[in-house]
Nucleic acid binder design. Structure first.
Length: 208
DNA sequence: GCAATTCGGGAGACTCCGGC
DNA sequence: GCCGGAGTCTCCCGAATTGC
């Protein structure tokens, strides 16, 4: 079993290594202190079984780094480890495809539980923070999505799968410029400023 | 029925930005 | 500096809708 521990704090990497070691005896731990080192770890041909990822790391750029990893490694579970205990951040991380969210304040036993759950194919939600509140979809987001045309939804769907404009153009059999025009309309209607934010909104609604 | 208007889809030209 | 990707502006075309 190969686990990538990505955190800029050496002490916390050490703690996470202990957590992984406690959960899986034969685990091989790789470490990264920034997004470049994550890239170097991914360049290795050996597949990863789990990634423990700090959101606030050099080169991560918020959720963009998580989305990029999600696109590059769609089958590898990613657990976000963060000092943030903001419900919005947790929900957004899960919406971006994280298999779990571990607050750094969690006791070691809880972290082991999270790693075990995720490796069993389940999603770990820190219910002590989220409480029992069920995720409600903002009706405003629903409305924004509803304003998209059929073609724009298709573009957004392919965008959410990590496709570039060029790939979307190829799949829809249109030119690159047409895709970009749709993209501009999507950004305007969803009231966002980048394709990454558009994907986040789409995933928050859970349609893509 | 027909002209005007609106809207969505498609494309060309252009700028901006980041990576090499 | 060059190149590729992303985003914006503008225009054209066709279909649907509206008003006369």
């Amino acid at each position: 079993m190969r686990v990538l521990i990505a955190d800029d704090h050496p002490l916390f990497r050490d703690a996470l290594r202990h957590v992984v070691g406690q959960s899986f005896d034969a685990a091989e731990c790789l470490e990264a202190c920034d997004f470049n080192q994550i890239g170097a770890a991914l360049a290795d041909d050996e597949p990863l079984d789990l990634i423990l990822l700090d959101l606030n790391m050099p080169g991560m750029d918020g959720f963009t780094g998580l989305l990029r990893l999600r696109e590059d490694l769609p089958d590898t579970p990613i657990i976000v480890v963060s000092a943030s205990e903001d419900v919005e951040v947790i929900e957004q991380a899960l919406a971006c495809g994280a298999a779990g969210f571990i607050p750094k304040s969690s006791p070691k036993e809880r972290m082991c539980e999270a790693v075990g759950l995720v490796m069993n194919g389940e999603i770990f939600r820190p219910e002590e923070i989220l409480g029992t509140k069920t995720r409600t979809i903002d009706p405003l987001l629903e409305e924004k999505l509803g304003s998209l045309t059929h073609r724009q939804r298709m573009v957004l769907q392919l965008l959410a799968r990590g496709k570039s404009n060029k790939q979307i153009a190829y799949e829809l059999d249109v030119t690159n410029t047409t895709v970009k025009a749709h993209m501009t309309a999507i950004l305007r209607k969803l009231k966002v400023t980048s394709r990454t934010q558009a994907v986040i909104v789409a995933r928050q609604i859970g349609r893509f």
